[in-house]
């Protein structure tokens, strides 16, 4: 129950900082941090990973870390080329 209150408060805070111009430069890091906090609260408490077997944690973490690694790599290769589909000269 306490967790749910914290989750609700974090969501409120997220929306609040979205509308505060003074925090514009910090917006993205703050949002990522808040979102990460919510994510962890749900998987650790609501999904009991904190209390449950390590095997479950490992299974899930394997998928999550693999996802982060390969897709950051993939988007990086696009970034190195300058974004999606830079139209080659002469082709329209």
């Amino acid at each position: 129950m306490k967790i749910a209150v914290v989750l609700a408060l974090i969501t409120l805070a997220e929306i609040a900082i979205y509308y505060i111009p003074a925090l514009a430069s910090l917006l993205i890091p703050l949002l990522v941090a808040f979102s990460f906090a919510k994510f962890m609260l749900v998987i650790l408490w609501f999904m009991h990973l904190r209390f449950d077997s390590r095997i479950f944690t490992r299974l899930f973490a394997a998928g999550l870390l693999l996802t982060l690694t390969v897709f950051i790599l993939m988007l990086l290769t696009f970034f190195l080329r300058g974004g999606p589909a830079p139209t080659p000269p002469g082709i329209t």
Binding site: V70, M74, T77, F78, P84, A85, T87
Partner: peptide, 17 residues
């Protein structure tokens, strides 16, 4: 579809991933 600004390379990435 490149005609709509999309990048066919995305298919190659996902397919070979």
């Amino acid at each position: 579809d490149p005609a709509a600004g999309a990048d066919p390379l995305l298919w190659q990435h996902l397919f070979w991933l």
